[in-house]
């Protein structure tokens, strides 16, 4: 047994085995994705940047029920509401702290009117500290901007829900 060990050591057989492993990897197909140019496919279920949606007539969907704010595990959502002249309840303030948000998607699940949704936008940034508070206007603008794409993704995902 000892002699076998000695021969193993002296012939560097384990080293050669290790070399072969890495040499095989050297010629293997590379798996790197050249990110900004090439992107990996995203699931329609992907949970990205939050947005507020509108009805087709342009009226905002949110009815200020505060379910999203209640369910939010990170307590990222702050809502204040008022009664409009037509008697409907609407938000005056709908802030999401983007640094607190953990993109769990509970708000989307909780929303009774499908107002708050998660788009599949994940490449975004902010340049000022205050911008981490996503105001109602910003959220509605995001919703308007990615409306078609988001609706399509929700439709694709709907059959699994």
């Amino acid at each position: 047994m000892k002699i076998i060990q000695l021969i193993k050591k002296l012939t560097l057989i384990d080293f050669i085995k290790g070399f072969i492993v890495t040499l095989k990897a050297f010629f293997r197909r590379k798996v790197t994705v050249q990110y900004p140019e090439v992107k990996t496919p995203l699931s329609p279920r992907f949970r990205g940047k939050l947005a507020l949606m509108r009805y087709d007539n342009g009226e905002e969907r949110c009815i200020a029920c505060k379910l999203c704010s209640a369910v939010c595990p990170a307590q990222a959502i702050t809502i204040e509401s008022e009664e409009r002249t037509d008697g409907s309840r609407r938000t005056v303030k709908f802030d999401i702290d983007a640094f607190k948000c953990i993109y769990c998607g509970f708000c989307e699940e909780a929303c009774p009117v499908d107002s708050i949704v998660e788009t599949n936008i994940f490449e975004y940034h902010m340049t000022e500290n205050q911008q981490r508070i996503q105001t109602k206007e910003m959220l509605l603008a995001t919703g308007d901007q990615y409306r078609d794409q988001t609706i399509e993704n929700k439709k694709k995902d709907s059959r699994y829900r």
């Binding site: 890495t22 040499l23 990897a25 050297f26 293997r28 197909r29 590379k30 798996v31 790197t32 050249q34």
Partner: peptide
């Protein structure tokens, strides 16, 4: 580059 290739990466490009 060589180490990248041995890690199945492409290395600096």
């Amino acid at each position: 580059k060589v180490i990248g290739y041995m890690h199945s990466r492409v290395g600096p490009n």
